[in-house]
Nucleic acid binder design. Sequence first.
DNA 1: AATCTGCATGTTGTCGACAATCCATAAGGT
DNA 2: ACCTTATGGATTGTCGACAACATGCAGATT
Lengths: 228, 228
Amino acid sequence: MTPSGMTAVPSDGMGPIENVPLRVQVADRIRTAILSGRLKPGEPLVETALAEQMTVSRAPIREAIQILENDGLVETIAYKGKRVKPLTAREVEEIYSLREAYEVMAVRRIIERGADASPLRGPCEDMNRAAAADDLEALTAADEAFHRTLIQIADHDLLLASWRSLYLRIHQIMALRMRRRPELPQIAANHPPIVDALVARDMDRAVKLISDHTRNLEEIDPQTIADT
Amino acid sequence: MTPSGMTAVPSDGMGPIENVPLRVQVADRIRTAILSGRLKPGEPLVETALAEQMTVSRAPIREAIQILENDGLVETIAYKGKRVKPLTAREVEEIYSLREAYEVMAVRRIIERGADASPLRGPCEDMNRAAAADDLEALTAADEAFHRTLIQIADHDLLLASWRSLYLRIHQIMALRMRRRPELPQIAANHPPIVDALVARDMDRAVKLISDHTRNLEEIDPQTIADT
DNA sequence: AATCTGCATGTTGTCGACAATCCATAAGGT
DNA sequence: ACCTTATGGATTGTCGACAACATGCAGATT
């Protein structure tokens, strides 16, 4: 799979072509726009406009949009148009509750199979550093690394893929909400106990910790949410 | 939305056409072929051949295949070809373990939110009837109806969509394994206690029952599975 | 004034042709 | 004999043009 988050556009002298299909490049660009909040929920996506804008044909655009549809970021209404999928409060709740189920499953699986949870220590340290430096962006990145690592340790490709797809939308939500700055040190302090419970193979405690951690962690700004 | 499951081809005088896009029709046809086992894992899917076979252009074929890719039934290797995704033993395990997580989540949510679990009684009765008549097909259908109803009662659209996508592959697995006939009465007898625990709001018992029920329920014929 | 009808416009849906890429195979050199 | 290098075939990737469809507006009709 592609190493997520990297949009490699070589800037060195000879710019040979990237072997990645156009539809993927297009999908990455549009996805970035959505995830950064530049394209807001409900915004229409017109194929011809995008095609002209990116100087490609409509075919890759269509296929790219279909990719984003599978990611749950775009929805299509036949013969009417495509648009960035509106985010309802209900959907936000569903996304976070499903994430909780995924992470609980990962925790259970890690303990049941006796996997080594110590790789989680790295992201924990990163979070501490970020919290000390009051660097919200770095802390967010380390937090995601922590959770992604958790899923990876569970050694379950399907779970990892599902989690990834879900986390895309969490990115979108996080970009849309511009709330008060969270307490960085507190977030950083939340994670090490989870690791401790995992290495101690304390199932009940680990499940409870991850469950509490993922639940209600993020609250969404009601203004950016559709009503229905 | 269109009323699901109906392929309305009106035979009366004035026939208003079906408005379903070609790509969807194509996707349905290919999906049926895969799910029925007529197209086996690893089998190549050549766009031009399918296009000629179905007398449509390649564009709808490509988009249909992409839909199936999102369903996890097909995989693409760039500039090389597309094929029915091979089923590894590992994937089968992952599919069923993820299904367990989904259904456990549904059970927890149903009890937490005090939802009415009595609609599950209908499929239970259907299963009893099917078991009494020794009708495997009817029992399989009722079993799926039970689990789908369980997810629907949880009132979680995203969970339902994820479960559906997963269940597609379970269909495929079930079509591929031609094992000994299972004990129909026993399967039918497994479900009512789950309903009882749900209406009694007995969380621990309900979770344990659904967990045991989904786990190890299906064993796959090794011969139909890829080695990796 | 209200309603229906027909048309114009914008968007997606579909098509056929061409280009880019990969793989296997065979030719050529050492 | 072995390795390297063309070359041909097969498949997907991309393109531009045309068709189908839905919607909104203007005009006619009652």
